[in-house]
Amino acid sequence: MNDLNQARNHVLEQIQQACLTANRDVSQVQLLAVSKTHSSEMLNAMYATGQRAFGENYLQEALDKIEALSDLEIDWHFIGHVQRNKTKHLAEKFAWVHGVDRLIIAERLSNQREATQAPLNICLQVNIDAQDTKDGCQPEEVADLVAQISQLPNLKLRGLMVIPAPNNPQAFLDAKTLFENVKPQHAHPEDWDTLSMGMSGDMSEAITAGSTMVRVGTALFGSRDYSKSV
């Protein structure tokens, strides 16, 4: 646990330094611990360091962890690609879903989220730099999606999520510009507050460009063992 505590403190220091350099308040940037392939025991230990927001990519693995750690007050984020046949579990079990890129997915999440639950926070995933291997809607589709999805019940459309190619800081700036440009299309613009971008290797560049949430795995937990993923 001391190793995890040191790792988390180091990441928080990097976030603080990036905010200082960019003349931003550190409270404007949230740390999301990307915990895919890591055990429930390791998540429990990371929780003990003060971390509360965890991001998972694989649904069945995440559901197992949610059950195993149900006694903890974890803010669960799903950051993998959202498939139509898995929206029910996402709507029921998560606080955030980052990988929404089509209206039909948002509609299913809205319909399957219980009215007694808090609204499901969602981010639109945008393929900001036109990568063939990445999911996400196209930048030119975002304004219409924001206008439509922001009117759905049981959802709170919070912002955008991007995963640019490595060494492409311009993509972060493009995402920030897009984030600002489409805000007027939002039915509830006060909810539009999240730009989820930046990972272990490029969080400083993302924060400089305006990220409000960095998704960090390796720098917190070490290398992943994908043989354990589901």
Rank of each mutant, 00 (worst) to 15 (best):
V146A: 06
W96K: 02
N44K: 13
P139Q: 12
D193E: 15
E140R: 08
K65F: 08
A48R: 12
R102H: 06
L173W: 10
T218E: 14
Q83S: 08
C19Q: 08
S110N: 12
M213V: 04
D225L: 03
S200N: 12
L90T: 09
A175M: 09
L72Y: 08
F179T: 05
H10G: 15
D225C: 10
A118Q: 15
L90K: 04
Q170Y: 05
T218M: 06
F54D: 02
I163Y: 03
R113E: 00
N44H: 10
L43W: 02
P119T: 03
D193P: 04
E190A: 14
G80S: 11
A7G: 14
N9Y: 07
T49R: 06
N111C: 08
M42W: 04
K183Y: 02
R108T: 07
F94N: 09
Q6D: 15
S110F: 07
N121Y: 07
A91S: 10
N111H: 13
G50M: 00
S110V: 04
K183C: 06
Q30T: 10
L145W: 00
R8T: 14
Q170E: 14
A175P: 15
M42R: 05
H188D: 15
H81N: 15
L109E: 04
L90I: 12
A22M: 11
Q185G: 03
Q28K: 12
T177S: 14
E190F: 09
F172S: 05
L145P: 03
C123E: 06
L124W: 00
G99V: 01
A130K: 09
H98N: 12
A7M: 13
D3Y: 09
D64I: 05
N23W: 06
Y226W: 13
N127A: 05
A147L: 08
L145S: 03
T177L: 09
I128D: 03
D135M: 09
S35H: 08
M46Q: 04
S150W: 03
K36E: 11
L160I: 06
V29Y: 00
G136N: 05
D144N: 15
Q125L: 01
A22D: 13
A130W: 04
E190W: 10
A45G: 13
K183W: 00
R113Q: 03
L157M: 07
D71H: 13
G80A: 11
W96E: 09
P189N: 13
A206G: 10
L63H: 01
L160N: 01
V29H: 00
L152K: 05
T194N: 11
C137V: 03
A45S: 12
I207G: 01
S200I: 05
A18K: 04
R108N: 13
S229T: 15
Q170K: 15
L124I: 06
